[in-house]
Design a protein around this nucleic acid. Structure first.
Lengths: 225, 225, 225, 225
DNA sequence: AATGAATGAGCATTCATTCAT
DNA sequence: CATGAATGAATGCTCATTCAT
């Protein structure tokens, strides 16, 4: 697979083949993601992204119809990855006993390395989706939907007590809890100092603590029913 | 004293007394909230708000230091109201049996009329807090923190099984689930049509269904422990 | 003269007599001047001035038709004072020998305590006059003109060599040199650090040195002719 | 190569080469300068400048980081030009006899066509410098400083009596006198009518008369020492 | 006379997107 | 394919001034 090997090197001056184009598209996404993360979850400008990717602003628009699509694609990729990871966890017998705690713990641990996904989720569900053309949301929705369906089925199979057809709902609950807690747990820079004051300590939830508790409750609720 | 009686009507041309000023401030908030809601959760411009309130742009800045403060104040009020409502539910014996369902149902029903609060929550936690001066977040945080503390105590008292000190955490889980699910359940205009397609049906969660399930799980988890 | 004695105390709640009004007007001017100086030569807002004077914004407009008038009046007063001081110098025989240096030195020393006047002069001649109603400039021009005429006559009498009728011209030259040099010598905050670099040393003139030299030249020129 | 020949005409729709870009930058400066002059020394809005140059507002910001930079660049150019002209005068033997009058006359005549420079100088030294980022002042300061150094040396060489090292000081005196007198001589529109009244005749100095006298004095002072 | 609430004109700046080259 | 110059919509905020009280 020479293509794969080359894909990771610098993209060529002109991306002609499909592989080249995919590589360039990927390079843009990487640049966008890095900048997004470095900015603490703030969307970088298209120009910044292009420069970071070593390209011109206009080039970005050859690969993405709009700025928001870029980040939607980014979240799509992050979600896909998370889905896989989650899938693996569900397939691990150690996580699917009658005790929800192992799975919850595994999930929380796994999310520890997914700050970018969490930040993107906050942006996308809160703001981004509003500003994108209908078609642009399509890819995102497709991946999400199919992932949800697949994972939902897995959930129904592996977690006893989950009623047939309720798998996706349970996943949505889980995802909502994760993203919702993350929003509360990662306040903006300006609020950072404030919530560190003792009188506001209960406003800055310990993300992991609260999340673990919530996940256990939701998962255990399914197991018990 | 007809004046006192009509205090809730339109404030006088010039708000001199504290009551008049409060009324005017309130009128601005109402205008802002209505426009926000009408725009489907998009922040209106200050000028729009002023015009809707029958005032000039500059006048708004006599009552709010910045645009974002306005909406933070709005959410503060909405939250305060919700806290009260929630408090009443918790104090209702019918909601604090060993079955979490009555409380969950009550909460979901109550939230049905709080679309504005939910939309504001999405905006504030996702975007607004990032853009406001530290002092401006203070009032918001104070109300939230004290409400959380108070409600948290109530939760610990009224819901058996909630460990002392874990009340606020449970509330955060609940709040996160609510806001998180709302984000997923209220796609932007552009995505509205899309998720109505059958193949995406599982992406447009039935907010009430998923929320009820999640709340029951979290609350029941506490009751059972 | 009880009035004079009272005039310097806090102005009464309501200024009724002419003396009271003058005192209040004076208080406003003092507040304006102090704030102007504290701000490094930046015009304070009317609100700031009013508050500093312990008055409401609107009250300022009972005494001055426009913000700029205030500062024009301020400069008028400063100039009047300087004129007097200058007059005294001219009347001092020690300053009116055939050597211009004593007078130049005296002037420079005197200007050392007139930073406010210099800053005002820069503002007024450069910007303020443009923005004031015609009538408002009247008082300023009157004082300036009469002072110039009077001082000009004195100059013609006391400085040998000054042709009859050229006294005011000489004064204008002197005044222009002073204000012009001051502008160059007091760069804005942002440029302060820069001109302190060695490579720009010649851009930050030693105000006193350059001014003394210039004054001596102009005055001596008259003496010699 | 017709293109090269018409380089000074309107730049192409899109300025790609460095020359085109310089031409466009120049076109913006010309537009800004003309508007500034037409407005009697008032800064036009960026939008006005852009429209006059046949461009969109945003385009201006491709060539200047901020509005003030534009006018600083304008003064820089004007000063550079004046420096050259001044330099030529100094190199002219007819201007460097023991009589300062020829040089003074030449300078005054030369300044007659530099109204734009004088108005800009008033704005820049009085207001503009205060509002610009430090880096933006750099270019201006550099040109000024180097011009001052160069001209200062020339002055020392060509005007007998100027002590080594005092050339720049003398130039500053000259520049200050010029700008200072201009400020006094060009009252704002509103004051124009007023100073034409006979009683204020001495306030509206004959710029050329007073300037000539002052320059002669300063220059002669050097020659005589 | 004094107040201070209300007004609203005025403007620089950013940045996603387009399209000529 | 790539570029990057050009576009221009969009808007929060200040503050001098007015005038109802």
């Amino acid at each position: 697979m020479p293509d794969t090997a080359v894909a990771s090197s610098a993209p060529p001056r002109r991306a002609r083949g499909a592989a080249d184009k995919a590589a360039r598209r990927q390079a843009i996404l990487v640049a966008a993601g890095d900048l997004f993360d470095e900015a603490g979850g703030e969307l970088p400008s298209v120009d910044q992204v292009a420069r970071r990717a070593g390209l011109a602003k206009g080039t970005v628009y050859l690969y993405f119809g709009a700025k928001e699509e870029m980040f939607l694609a980014l979240l799509t990729a992050e979600l896909r990855d998370w889905f896989e990871s989650f899938s693996a966890m569900l397939n691990d017998d150690a996580n699917t006993t009658n005790d929800a705690r192992p799975l919850a713990n595994a999930m929380v641990a796994d999310l520890g390395g997914r700050r970018k996904m969490l930040r993107l989720a906050v942006q996308c569900h809160g703001t981004l989706e509003r500003q994108v053309a209908e078609e642009a949301v399509l890819g995102f929705k497709q991946v999400t939907a199919s992932g949800l369906a697949e994972l939902g089925g897995l959930v129904e199979n592996r977690i006893s007590g989950v009623v047939r057809g309720e798998g996706p709902t349970l996943l949505l609950q889980v995802y909502a809890l994760i993203v919702g807690l993350w929003q509360l747990a990662e306040p903006a820079r300006s609020a950072r100092a404030m919530v560190d004051r003792p009188e506001f300590s209960n406003l800055r939830p310990d993300f992991e603590h609260a999340l673990t508790g919530g996940l256990v409750a939701i998962l255990q609720g399914a197991l018990d029913s």
